[in-house]
Simulated scan of single mutants.
Amino acid sequence: MTSLIHDLAHVTVRQVAVGDMDNNVYLITAKASGAQVLIDAADDLPALQALLAEGAADSGAPTKLELIATTHQHWDHVRALEGLVEATGARTAAGRQDVSGIPVPVDVVLDHGDVYTCGEVSAGAQEHGGFDLTAVHLRGHTPGSIAYVLKDDDGPHLIFSGDSLFPGGVGNTQKDPDRFHLLIGDVITRLFDVYPDDAVVYPGHGRPTTLGAERPHLDDWRARGW
């Protein structure tokens, strides 16, 4: 079974599920430069290293893990983070309000709307062998949860949503109405109101969906309160 889920013009995306909670880990590789970002070093360091080895075949240049991007601070999303940093020397990124809960120093502190350019580029990421990831701050599941959005020329927007958006609803807010209203408000205004229906949502656990498949149910989610 292949880990490859997208083979786009400038990048590939690979995915593996790890650990007892079946956490999804995603690897983006720039075809021209070999620059890579891994999203959520959740568990099972050998499996993550195998994923990196598979990603090495996706580039004509030597690959290098440039950044480990964490969607949020919960323990099941960071269990292999320290080991992967030690093994690769990669920089780390996380949302500002979750930094204190990340078990390693955070090199790139993200706020809503920040754009991280992976790869050594001078102007226009894709023309020079890199790619851009846009940080979307989604409050509620944790204070600093970040969704990472990737757009390549020939494909849809890809939204790596962590535990903030799944098929069938938003993430767990422990029945706290204030946190729920924060989360669904951010998901609607910062994802559904910004990105098109063909945007693919890749959550922290389970199967992907699209914004178009979920959009008709937003009122139902709000009414039920979870």
Rank of each mutant, 00 (worst) to 15 (best):
residue 48 L to F: 04
residue 63 T to H: 10
residue 114 D to Q: 03
residue 136 V to S: 03
residue 198 D to P: 04
residue 225 G to P: 06
residue 221 W to S: 00
residue 162 G to I: 13
residue 204 G to S: 08
residue 121 V to A: 04
residue 33 S to I: 14
residue 186 D to R: 05
residue 37 V to F: 09
residue 34 G to F: 13
residue 17 A to L: 03
residue 196 P to C: 06
residue 91 R to W: 04
residue 193 D to E: 14
residue 157 H to V: 08
residue 114 D to R: 10
residue 3 S to Y: 03
residue 203 P to N: 10
residue 24 N to P: 07
residue 100 S to K: 14
residue 213 A to S: 05
residue 114 D to P: 05
residue 192 F to K: 05
residue 42 A to L: 06
residue 122 S to P: 00
residue 205 H to D: 00
residue 158 L to V: 11
residue 16 V to K: 03
residue 16 V to R: 06
residue 219 D to C: 02
residue 156 P to K: 02
residue 141 H to P: 03
residue 174 Q to A: 14
residue 111 D to S: 15
residue 218 L to V: 15
residue 53 A to L: 02
residue 35 A to P: 13
residue 40 D to H: 11
residue 160 F to V: 04
residue 176 D to H: 15
residue 96 R to D: 09
residue 28 I to F: 11
residue 14 R to D: 07
residue 43 D to A: 08
residue 171 G to F: 12
residue 88 T to A: 12
residue 39 I to F: 01
residue 95 G to S: 11
residue 184 I to P: 13
residue 71 T to H: 09
residue 22 D to H: 10
residue 155 G to S: 09
residue 178 D to I: 15
residue 146 I to Q: 01
residue 111 D to L: 08
residue 38 L to I: 12
residue 136 V to L: 04
residue 41 A to H: 05
residue 179 R to L: 15
residue 81 L to D: 11
residue 147 A to Y: 08
residue 75 W to S: 09
residue 154 D to Q: 03
residue 131 F to K: 02
residue 110 L to Y: 12
residue 96 R to Y: 04
residue 100 S to H: 11
residue 103 P to T: 11
residue 44 D to G: 00
residue 21 M to V: 07
residue 215 R to N: 00
residue 76 D to R: 05
residue 201 V to E: 01
residue 161 S to L: 04
residue 34 G to H: 12
residue 3 S to V: 01
residue 95 G to C: 05
residue 200 V to H: 07
residue 52 L to H: 04
residue 14 R to H: 14
residue 83 G to P: 09
residue 202 Y to P: 10
residue 146 I to H: 03
residue 224 R to W: 13
residue 25 V to Q: 01
residue 63 T to L: 09
residue 71 T to Y: 08
residue 147 A to T: 15
residue 70 T to E: 09
residue 210 T to A: 04
residue 154 D to F: 05
residue 47 A to G: 02
residue 191 L to Q: 06
residue 36 Q to T: 12
residue 23 N to M: 10
residue 6 H to Y: 08
residue 213 A to W: 00
residue 205 H to S: 05
residue 10 H to N: 15
residue 77 H to N: 14
residue 48 L to H: 07
residue 186 D to T: 12
residue 13 V to C: 05
residue 197 D to M: 06
residue 50 A to F: 02
residue 69 A to N: 05
residue 96 R to G: 01
residue 36 Q to Y: 07
residue 169 G to R: 11
residue 133 L to S: 07
residue 121 V to T: 15
residue 194 V to F: 10
residue 8 L to K: 09
residue 138 L to K: 03
residue 77 H to D: 02
residue 213 A to Y: 00
residue 87 A to I: 07
residue 123 A to N: 01
residue 86 E to G: 09
residue 146 I to A: 01
residue 188 I to Q: 06
residue 183 L to I: 14
residue 206 G to Q: 04
residue 35 A to V: 12
residue 212 G to L: 09
residue 158 L to K: 11
residue 65 L to P: 12
residue 63 T to W: 07
residue 140 G to M: 01
residue 220 D to A: 15
residue 92 T to A: 05
residue 222 R to W: 13
residue 109 V to Y: 07
